[in-house]
Design a protein around this nucleic acid. Structure first.
Length: 369
DNA sequence: AAGTCGGGGCT
DNA sequence: AGCCCAGACTT
């Protein structure tokens, strides 16, 4: 616990009120701030995990339009759910949300839990999201800690240890809890995050405009630029990958990825990583043989697509291809399902962003004669 | 405690 | 090319 004689404890009522006033004056007009509907708040919080506000807004509207409540989400096929999530990343969020909605319908009489503890049991809801739903939708005096809140308190408290350490997180959580003005956790918690997003930013923070600048130990000690202390990140690796657009009778072969792991449940064009000393064309032939037990002829190059993931970057070599023996039947090893589709059907399936860019090329070029 | 899981925008 | 973001889950 924060000691009663700490600077934070003495200044807390003042700090809390300053933040509430600042938030009332400066809050952005975001779609999820027009509602306290717990389902809508839940949608926004899942989408906002590790994802910036501007990216989320169009997805948020489309989602509520298509899945306006827990029941409609629970009823929907996973393919539809992933299609709506396409391009937003971290697809397990969509899978977990879908599963959670089905648990609510099947085991909780369709009612979203209203306690922190019960919310935490649902897949995809962790400490942050449970706190967000409790405080914003149900106005319970429960704190939340996201990357903004970590940064704000790392500076106010001038924390010199990495914020990701469990001791640091505990300290931040306790500070956030102690500052909640009773009955106003929703506004206070959102105010903290908004402060981190607009004023107490990672780079070039606007300390002169900050409602907490009189309480900020890092500002006083001129350590703002070195807070928060972050653990070093791993370097990104480069990967070479081939993918084939296999055509037979005017249709294209696509496969659905397995239900676990990277981009689970999304559709893709078959292919895989190049082995050392292997050409993209050789890799493609090998991958079709290994993954689908099909012998293919690698045809004309379509494009080389560069795509950056968080921890690696890919050069994706893409080729038209045909079957050596059209009578061969694919045997699935690395996919849950395969489908032969018309080019115009590709739009209805959920693909990773890199494959989406390939589809653009396919549609532009058309299937070669 | 550390690794995994996307994507886009910014520097 | 690296950094960052309204984190959760697995190992």
């Amino acid at each position: 616990m924060t000691a009663d004689n700490s600077p934070l404890a003495r200044l807390s009522p003042d700090l809390s009120q300053s933040l509430l006033d600042w938030f009332a004056a400066h809050a952005r007009d975001l779609p999820w701030r027009k509602t306290t509907n717990p389902y809508a708040i839940w949608v926004s919080e899942i989408m906002l995990q590790q994802t910036q506000v501007v990216m989320v807004i169009p997805y948020y509207h489309r989602w509520l339009d298509r899945f306006p409540n827990v029941g409609s989400l629970a009823m929907a096929p996973l393919d539809d759910v992933l299609k709506l999530w396409e391009g937003l990343g971290y697809y397990s969020r969509a899978r977990n949300f879908h599963k959670a909605s089905q648990i609510i319908v099947e085991e909780l009489q369709g009612k979203i839990p209203e306690t922190y503890k019960e919310l935490l049991k649902l897949p995809g809801i962790g400490a942050y999201t449970a706190g967000a739903i409790c405080s914003i939708a149900f106005n319970q005096d429960i704190p939340l800690v996201d990357a903004n809140v970590k940064r704000v308190f790392a500076r106010i408290l001038d924390m010199d240890k990495p914020v990701e350490q469990s001791a640091s997180l505990r300290e931040i959580r306790e500070a956030a809890q102690s500052l909640i003005p009773p009955g106003q956790a929703g506004a206070f918690n959102q105010g903290l995050m908004e402060l981190g997003a607009l004023v107490c930013t990672t780079k070039n923070p606007h300390c002169l405009e900050c409602p907490a600048n009189g309480h900020c130990l890092a500002k006083k000690r001129q350590t703002v630029d070195s807070r928060p202390v972050l653990a070093p990140r791993k370097k990104t690796r480069a990967l070479e990958v081939s993918a084939g657009v296999l055509v037979r009778d005017g249709r294209i072969l696509v496969q659905k990825r397995l239900p676990k792991g990277l981009m689970a449940g999304l559709w893709e064009f078959p292919g895989g990583k190049l082995d050392p000393e292997e050409s993209p064309e050789q890799a493609l032939v090998r991958e079709f043989a290994e993954e689908l037990e099909i012998d293919i002829v690698c045809g004309k190059k379509i494009a080389v697509i560069q795509h950056a993931y968080t921890r690696f970057r890919v050069r994706l070599h893409t080729f038209w291809s045909t079957m050596k023996n059209p009578g061969q039947k694919p045997v699935l090893h690395a996919a849950e399902e395969i489908r032969w589709v018309l080019p115009e059907e590709l739009d209805g399936l959920a693909f990773p962003s890199a494959d989406r860019r390939l589809i653009q090329k396919i549609v532009e070029e058309g299937i070669p004669a």
